[in-house]
């Protein structure tokens, strides 16, 4: 049985979306919203003769991180690559709206209470973005989610947790970029255009998608951490991710705002500086960037365990 305690030491990478959702919040605190028993399935897939799932590949629910209500969205990569369709998208949107309404209702009470019980949103990404079978609805959901992230900004922290096999690509890559804090493991990946698509469009010489070492050192957690695209690199257990989420829940909103990689003049300027730096360097490989940032032996960083890596890695702008 998947008890909360056995889940904690489980590999995040190996876990299902539901196990992640349950394990990311405090023991026994998770309640699923629009769960599989509701049978809210995609109306589009049956027409196409494609298999359906009772939760449409997305687990949503509410739990607690200490005193903080945690709204959890967890994508399931094994169901059609974690793609976001009409139902799954609506579930994401609904969960984010719920976070906002909890925040607003807390504002009715004392300021101290509202601060102490400020909600937090945790999104575990495992997706390539829009589900092509129902692309219009999927795209619309992306837009709505993006809107809601703006509504939640400076009110409710939104944390992206990326530790899954598929990682986070496509339209959801943009969504992840627009969250307040990004937490990754070295086994996961974050990007916009997926490796296979880059290879298809630009040719194998530009990017060999079958070279997984290359894929990981370009889109993987370690690279994203060095480049500042992700804020925290953690180990691969559910407990590792939960502890990091707990830590963010306790941070002040000003600190959290400071974690953002985009969305302010300062952030844009920092990004432009990085772009200029890269353009001057003309790197052939991400390891060239690492070296230029002061990492003398890039290969050592690839081999290093997560703990060693944290000790030795030199980050952009860190």
């Amino acid at each position: 049985m998947s008890t909360w305690h056995t889940l904690q030491e489980r590999s995040f990478l190996e876990s299902s979306a539901r196990q992640r959702a349950i394990g990311l919040v405090d023991a026994g605190s998770f309640s699923e919203l629009v769960g599989p028993l509701e049978r809210f399935v995609s109306p589009h897939l049956p027409i196409l003769g494609e298999a359906i799932e009772f939760d449409d590949g997305i687990v949503t629910g509410v739990g607690l991180l200490g005193k903080h209500p945690a709204i959890v969205i967890s994508q399931e990569g094994r169901f059609i690559g974690g793609s976001v369709g009409e139902v799954g998208g609506a579930k994401m949107v609904g969960a984010l709206k719920l976070a906002l309404s909890i925040f607003e209702s807390l504002q009715q009470g004392s300021a101290a209470e509202a601060e102490a019980r400020r909600p937090i949103v945790l999104i575990s990404f495992e997706t390539g973005g829009v589900r092509l079978h129902e692309a219009n609805a999927g795209l619309l959901a992306h837009a709505e989610v993006m809107d809601l992230l703006q509504d939640l900004r400076r009110k409710v922290p939104v944390v992206a947790l990326i530790g899954s096999k598929i990682g986070c690509f496509g339209g959801m890559g943009f969504i992840a970029a627009a969250t307040d804090v990004i937490v990754m493991s070295e086994f996961s990946r974050l990007g916009l255009t997926g490796p296979e698509v880059i290879e298809q469009e630009m040719g194998r010489n530009e990017f060999d998608a079958s070279d997984r070492a290359l894929v990981f050192r370009t889109t993987g957690g370690k690279h994203k951490f060095i480049m500042g695209d992700c804020n925290f690199l953690v180990g691969d257990t559910l407990a590792d991710f939960r502890r990091q989420a707990q830590h963010v829940a306790q941070m002040s909103m000003i600190e959290i705002e400071g974690m953002r990689r985009i969305g302010s003049r300062g952030a844009v300027e920092r990004q432009m500086k990085l772009v200029a730096f890269a353009a001057d360097l003309r790197p052939r490989d991400s390891t060239d960037m690492w070296k230029a940032l002061g990492n003398k032996e890039p290969q050592q960083l690839i081999a290093a365990s997560e703990e060693e890596f944290q000790k030795i890695a030199v980050r952009w702008n860190a």
């Binding site: 299902s16 979306a17 769960g35 599989p36 028993l37 298999a51 359906i52 799932e53 009772f54 399931e76 094994r78 169901f79």
Partner: peptide
């Protein structure tokens, strides 16, 4: 009770 994920070559059950 609900169990499983509809991955390729897999199923879920209620």
């Amino acid at each position: 009770v609900h169990y499983g994920v509809v991955g390729s070559g897999d199923m879920e059950v209620i």
